[in-house]
Amino acid sequence: MELLEFARGPALQSAMVIFVAGVLWRIIGILALPFISIPSRARKGVLPEGEVKGWFEGIWRRMWPHKSFIRQALFSTINGHVYHIGLFVVVFLFAPHIAFIKDLTGLSWASLPSNLVNAVGVVTAASLIAALIHRLTNPVQRLISTFNDYFSWFVTLAPVLTGLLAVSHLGARYETLLAIHLLSIALLLIWFPFGKLMHAFLFVVSRGATGARMKHRGAQI
């Protein structure tokens, strides 16, 4: 139980503190850089709000590859969607997680049946493992991957796996598993601001900025 207390207490608290501070540090560190804009005349018909629209179109459009790329991007896209949606379901639609968020923020919403979430968790874990295998076997990904990529993968998979073990009581006593699960989340939170997981926030800007730029030119987003 002491491990669980450590996990629920100091570990999670310091992780949250690091997470919040780190995320803000990184986001503000980026957003406070000068905004370099080239004030060219927009393509005719693209109103000022068109660029804003482009921003959102960019965010939305890149959820799925363009037709020309589907064949090459199929695995990455489907697998990516599987674990992203899986993570979303597991993180945000599992009752204990909602309770955690409610405790932290006061916000709550309906949950999914635990059994369903568990099943999604298994699929998510499998999908993440597939992603790793792909990363290791695909020459391109292997070449461009760094510690950041592998470690981010690890800290993402770890809470899923430990969470699955915890709910199914496999391997150790529940409180130990829960503690390990919480510690793995703490690790995730600590790593989050410093690794590539920040794309969870930054995609809004990167997709949006390109969307706006392309919209401005009347080009394909």
Partner: peptide
């Protein structure tokens, strides 16, 4: 609920937010 953290983190997180914002602003 068991899945929640221990203790009230409101002020700690607010502090973290301020610190993070300051660091971010500083680095920028």
């Amino acid at each position: 609920p068991l899945s929640t953290g221990l203790g009230n983190m409101g002020s700690a997180l607010a502090g973290a937010a301020v610190a993070g914002a300051a660091l971010g602003g500083g680095s920028a």
